[in-house]
């Protein structure tokens, strides 16, 4: 981990301690507050990975992923909000040379919602997921990413994860201003693999830390849970896997292929790690007050939103074989 990344890890850990940790449950119940949105802007976290000439902070890949990692440890919803803006929305606007709009987003004057549409698997024309609905939204359609003006007609949503964010469903999409062809959006998506992995690993660390602390103090049959082999061995194995994955995340390597590999493994790892973390809390893990069930929910919800089991694996297979593979 380079010095800048290490410093960023410390800064954002402190930011999360001061602004998120104590209200993490409130975020799940009531959503991200305006105060917290403003704090993200003031801290320069929106636009963190954009070049300075576009109004961003110009952070390198690992420093930016340190932000996502640390935010996800505290609140996956907040981390996804930053990811959605920086890794998808602002990148699309950057490629579409929408500098003015970028400036307004980075300064907090406007917010855009995201309709991931065709970039995620399993969405249909009849009901699209919208995240953080706004007056203007980026819609990723079959052929283009476009700027959709006006609030779409919303349906009642069901929210497995990301309860801190507003998510909804809607049916009708008006035509909007075309920003980028789909192929370019796909490239942005693949480049964001590192960032998605950072969130999956942050979620995993948040859950595992809770489980490790809990099993030190919770006793059964007169001994702390940590004294039992199945608990200690499993959590130690998961923590070891996590550290190895983090080493890759914070290495100097920024190749797209390695990012896709890391995302593929981290997505599955997050589901597994959060499941054990909840399990070792017993019945208490099933209650939101203990703060571990949200990681379990979010790991699965984010798998559906940030990892495409077929398309992402096909892209990975193509990069391994050097040609189109895994399509039959």
């Amino acid at each position: 981990m380079n010095d800048q990344t290490e410093m960023m890890m410390d800064n954002i850990r402190q930011f999360a301690q001061a602004n998120i940790n104590d209200i993490a449950l409130k975020i799940e119940r009531e959503g991200v507050s305006e105060d917290l949105y403003n704090s993200l802007i003031q801290q320069g976290l929106i636009g963190a990975n954009l070049p300075a000439e576009m109004g961003g902070a110009g952070l390198d890949r690992t420093s930016y992923d340190a932000i996502l990692f640390q935010l996800a440890r505290a609140s996956p919803s907040v981390a996804f909000h930053v990811f959605m803006n920086n890794s998808i929305i602002l990148k699309i606007l950057e490629k579409a040379s929408k500098k003015d709009m970028i400036g307004q987003i980075v300064s907090g004057k406007i917010r855009l919602g995201l309709i991931p549409g065709n970039i995620i698997e399993g969405s249909s024309e009849k009901s699209n997921i919208i995240i953080e609905p706004s007056k203007m939204n980026i819609y990723i359609g079959k052929e283009n990413a476009s700027l959709v003006d006006g609030m779409p007609e919303l349906l009642k949503s069901k929210s497995l994860g990301l309860r801190g964010l507003k998510t909804d469903l809607f049916t009708s999409i008006k035509d909007g201003e075309k920003l980028l062809p789909y192929g370019d959006v796909e490239k942005i998506w693949n480049e964001a693999s590192w960032d998605a992995a950072a969130i999956f690993l942050g979620i995993s660390e948040g859950a595992l830390e809770k489980a490790i602390e809990y099993t030190k103090v919770r006793k059964t049959f007169n001994f702390p849970l940590k004294d039992y082999e199945p608990v200690a061995f499993r959590l130690s194995e998961l923590k070891s896997e996590l550290e190895i994955l983090k080493n890759t995340l914070f290495s100097d390597d920024s190749k797209e292929q390695m990012g896709m590999m890391l995302k593929t493994i981290s997505a599955e790892f997050a589901r597994r790690a959060t499941k054990y973390a909840l399990q070792f809390h017993g019945g208490y893990g099933y209650l939101e007050d203990f703060g571990v069930e949200k990681f379990y929910r979010d790991a699965v919800a984010l798998n559906a939103l940030m990892f495409r089991p077929i398309l992402d694996k096909r892209a990975l297979a193509a990069s391994i074989y050097g040609e189109k593979s895994g399509y039959l």
Binding site: G122, S124, I129, K158, A301
Partner: peptide, 16 residues
């Protein structure tokens, strides 16, 4: 099943 259905699963009672 959530993995198989992707974003659709999020929008149905499968998530429950």
């Amino acid at each position: 099943a959530m993995e198989i259905t992707g974003a659709t699963g999020l929008q149905t009672d499968l998530e429950r």
